[in-house]
Amino acid sequence: MAGTDTPGGFYTFPGMGLHRELEILVEIGLTESEALQAATIKAARSIHLEDVGSINEGKIADLLLLNSNPIEDIKHTKDIHSIIKGGKQYRQEEILRK
Score class of each variant (00 low, 15 high):
Glu72Trp: 05
Ile95Trp: 03
Val52Asn: 07
Gly8Gln: 05
His76Asp: 06
Glu27Met: 14
Ala35Phe: 07
Pro7Tyr: 01
Ser54Leu: 05
Thr77Ala: 06
Ala35Gly: 08
Glu93Trp: 05
Gly3Cys: 00
Glu50Phe: 07
Glu72Ser: 13
Ile80Ser: 05
Val52Lys: 14
His48Cys: 12
Pro7Ile: 06
Thr31Ala: 12
Pro70Met: 15
Gly87Asn: 00
Glu21Asp: 09
Ile71Gly: 05
Leu64Asn: 09
Asn69Thr: 02
His81Arg: 12
Tyr90Ala: 04
Lys85Thr: 05
Gly8Tyr: 02
Tyr11Gly: 02
Thr40Gln: 13
His81Asn: 13
Asn56Gly: 04
Pro70Trp: 15
Asp5Thr: 00
Leu18Cys: 02
Thr31Cys: 14
Arg45Pro: 00
Glu23Tyr: 07
Leu36Pro: 01
Leu49Asp: 09
Ile60Pro: 02
Ser33Gly: 15
Lys88Asn: 07
Arg45Ser: 14
Glu27Lys: 09
Lys78Gln: 14
Gly15Asp: 02
Ala43Met: 11
Gln89Trp: 02
Leu96Trp: 08
Val26Asp: 04
Ala35Asp: 13
Glu34Met: 05
Ile83Arg: 01
Leu30Lys: 13
Ala61Glu: 06
Glu34Gln: 13
Gly9Val: 00
Gly58His: 06
Ile74Glu: 04
Thr40Tyr: 13
Thr4Phe: 01
His19Asn: 14
Gly3Lys: 02
Thr31Tyr: 13
Leu66Arg: 14
Leu96Tyr: 07
Glu72Tyr: 09
Gly15Asn: 06
Arg20Ala: 06
Ile83Ala: 01
Glu21Lys: 08
Arg20Glu: 15
Leu22Cys: 09
Thr40Val: 12
Leu18Tyr: 08
Ile95Thr: 09
Ala44Asp: 11
Ser82Trp: 01
Glu94Leu: 01
Ile41Thr: 11
Arg97Leu: 01
Thr6Arg: 09
Thr6Ile: 12
Ser33Pro: 10
Ser54Thr: 03
Ala2Phe: 12
Ala44Gly: 02
Arg20Cys: 03
Asp51Lys: 12
His48Leu: 15
Gly8Thr: 01
Glu32Cys: 11
Leu36Lys: 08
Leu49Pro: 01
Thr6His: 02
Ala35Glu: 11
Glu93Ala: 10
Ser82Asn: 06
Tyr11Glu: 14
Phe10Gly: 03
Ala38Gly: 04
Lys78Ser: 12
Asp79His: 07
Glu72Val: 09
Val52Ser: 08
Arg20Gly: 01
Glu21Asn: 11
Gly3Met: 07
Ala43Trp: 09
Ser68Cys: 05
Phe10Glu: 06
Asp62Cys: 14
Phe10Ala: 13
Leu30Asn: 14
Asn69Asp: 14
Glu27Cys: 14
Leu36Ile: 13
Phe10Leu: 10
Leu66Ala: 03
Ile47Met: 08
Ser33Tyr: 15
Leu25Gly: 08
Ile28Arg: 02
Ala38Met: 12
Glu21Leu: 07
His48Asp: 15
Glu93Lys: 08
Ala39Phe: 12
Phe10His: 10
Leu25Tyr: 15
Ala61Leu: 11
Gly86Asp: 00
Thr12Phe: 03
Asp5Tyr: 06
Lys88Cys: 11
Lys88Ala: 05
Ala39Lys: 10
Asp73Ser: 09
Ile41Lys: 15
Ile84Gln: 11
Ser46Thr: 03
Thr40Leu: 13
Ala43Gln: 06
Leu18Ser: 04
His19Gln: 15
Gly86Lys: 00
Leu49Trp: 06
Gly3Ser: 01
Ile74Ser: 03
